[in-house]
């Protein structure tokens, strides 16, 4: 850890270089490009349920089997979609964010020991 401590004394430039560097900008852009559209998609799906319930009650009342109607199925699918998005995010982070982050780390600390 001592090497980092030494670097920290004159890190002002290292921070600034990394901050301005293309890798860091790329990392943040990738993350933003994933996180924000994903949240938007999820919110839309979420609101679709409310809108369907208020404006298309007959559709929601369509019977699927026994006591189960479309409204209940769509409601329960909200859980499934939350789980699916999380899984996709974790894959994305493991595949794209971690390697990019590792490159930046090497840039600052030098090659991995």
């Amino acid at each position: 850890m001592s090497t980092i401590e030494e670097r920290r004394a004159d890190t002002g430039t290292v921070y600034e270089r990394v901050q301005a560097g293309p890798e860091f900008a790329d990392l943040r852009r990738r993350l933003r490009r994933f996180v924000f559209p994903m949240s938007a998609a999820f919110l839309v799906w979420y609101l679709a349920y409310v809108l369907l319930a208020s404006y298309a009650p007959e559709f929601m009342a369509t019977k699927v089997a026994g006591n189960i109607n479309v409204g209940i199925v769509v409601g329960l699918l909200q859980f499934v979609s939350t789980f699916a998005i999380t899984t996709v995010y974790v894959r994305f982070a493991n595949r794209h964010i971690d390697p990019a982050a590792e490159r930046i780390r090497q840039q600052i600390e030098g090659p991995a020991r």
């Binding site: 921070y15 901050q19 860091f24 982050a101 780390r105 600390e109």
Partner: peptide
């Protein structure tokens, strides 16, 4: 703010 933002968004184990 630059240093803090870098810390928030840069990888862990960076020291």
């Amino acid at each position: 703010v630059d240093a803090v933002m870098l810390r928030l968004h840069a990888p862990e184990r960076l020291g």
